[in-house]
Design a protein around this nucleic acid. Structure first.
Lengths: 192, 192
DNA sequence: CGGGCCTTTGACTGGTTTCAACTTCTGTGG
DNA sequence: CCACAGAAGTTGAAACCAGTCAAAGGCCCG
């Protein structure tokens, strides 16, 4: 149980078997069916979720019903509405499963407890957040400076798994495009 | 010396006077004139900088010479090319001063040392990164879902200081617009 | 006081969105 | 296992928003 999760931790920090056992007492497994919500806008986000298996997305919806995908999470990724979790305010994001998925849930209190008792975990989270922030900056920059085709190509090269497993209209949303525009860009590109 | 810096730390963690003294041995003050570079694309980023006074920006430049502003940093903010600093690879970002500024520099090694000797500092950085990441997600979302005018209004409400102190064409770049488009949007808005 | 940078304004262009129709794929129930 | 309904993807035409290029005015700084 929780293999992927502890493998992920092991990439950055080393835990004793006692620590692993202690750690596990704070974790909750959860399965999600395709299209099932982990979090709906308006609810308070109580858990950050680690993906053991499957694929999720987080997104917001505006007044007109348009979806804006913030993040995908495949195996080995964390997902959650950090702002809602931090402040206890209602979430602005929705999170649901793109495929049948298996998650590891960590509540806010659990996370704090773990960090207190296993400080290495805070170190791990700092490194993780650092990478996430760098990636966010880079994504931002690409969004601003690259053309439609370049953005799609970049995604294809950086995260081929995502492009393979996620429906195209969600990819479009993630890239800040309409499905029609992405479809046309792909057609254009295939002519080469 | 370093008043703003330690006030910032005190918002999240409490240091003893001994710890403060120890901390100071790792810090380097630096003054920057308006338009002076802290970091140029191609150089390796050796320091993260904390702004005691003044205003800086980080940005990238594409082949055509267009600038894309990633971040502003006023008093109390950190700035640096985290990716370059983390990996030791040449920076892709430029950082320069918008006003005459006073900085506190922390080298990568210094940072690691401090975290080892004062673990509370790693806690502080985790919280900081968490907020930075949340802000980045939110900015991203606004970029995708809001109109030109709404984006400008949002910035005006969230960071009025930035809009006041930073030249308009840099605001435009930060919002992902040309200076002309921002100028027209402002005109439009003033008609109300 | 002068020169250069910043901002504004105008005309034109082009890429993206929007709306609508059609095709293809998928999964669910009979 | 097939049939069918809904979802996903494609294609076309028209409208629109922002970008580009060019020029003029204003303001700041040396």
């Amino acid at each position: 149980m929780y293999e992927v999760f502890f493998k992920k931790l092991a990439e950055k920090i080393t835990l004793t078997t006692e620590e692993v056992d202690l750690f596990k007492t704070y974790l909750t497994p959860k399965k999600l069916r395709r299209k099932q919500y982990l979090l709906q806008e308006g609810d308070v986000c109580k858990y950050s979720a680690f993906v053991e298996k499957g694929a999720l997305r987080s997104y917001t919806i505006d007044e007109k019903g348009n979806e804006y995908i913030i993040q995908f999470a495949l195996e080995g990724w964390f997902i959650g509405d950090m702002y809602s979790m931090l402040t206890g305010e209602p979430a602005t994001q929705n999170i649901d499963a793109i495929e049948d998925s298996e998650l590891v849930l960590i509540s806010k209190q659990a996370e704090e407890e773990i960090m207190k008792r296993i400080p290495k975990y805070e170190h791990f989270m700092r490194l993780l957040l650092q990478n996430a922030y760098i990636a966010a900056q880079r994504r931002f920059n690409h969004m601003a400076s690259l053309s439609t085709e370049e953005r799609y190509t970049k995604l294809l090269n950086t995260y081929p798994e995502i492009v393979q497993r996620v429906p195209q209209h969600m990819i479009a949303s993630y890239l800040g495009l309409t499905p029609e525009t992405l479809s046309r860009a792909r057609k254009q590109m295939s002519r080469k």
